[in-house]
Amino acid sequence: MSAYALAHLRRAPVHAEVLEYMERIEATLAPYEGRFIVHGGTVDVLEGEWPGDVVIIEFPDLDSARSWYASASYQEIKPLRTRHLAGELIIVDGVEPDHDSSRMAADVRRAANL
Rank of each mutant, 00 (worst) to 15 (best):
L85A: 04
V43R: 06
G48N: 12
P60V: 06
L9G: 02
P60K: 13
Y74Q: 06
R109F: 13
L6H: 01
Q75G: 10
R11E: 07
A7G: 03
R110A: 14
W68Q: 02
R10E: 14
A72D: 15
D53Y: 02
Y21A: 06
P60N: 10
S67H: 14
L80K: 04
S102M: 14
T42I: 07
V43I: 13
V18C: 11
G34N: 08
R81P: 05
R83S: 13
G40Y: 03
W68G: 02
F59G: 09
A27H: 08
A16I: 11
D63G: 11
A111R: 14
Y21M: 09
V108P: 05
A112Q: 12
E58W: 06
E17V: 06
A5Y: 00
G40H: 05
S102K: 14
H84T: 05
A112I: 03
M104R: 04
T28R: 01
Y32T: 03
A111S: 09
D61H: 14
M104I: 01
L29V: 07
R83F: 03
W68K: 03
G87M: 04
L9F: 04
M104A: 11
A65K: 12
S67M: 12
L85P: 01
V95L: 08
F36K: 00
F59W: 11
L29T: 02
A65S: 10
G41V: 02
V45H: 00
L6I: 03
R24P: 11
R24E: 11
M104K: 04
R81E: 01
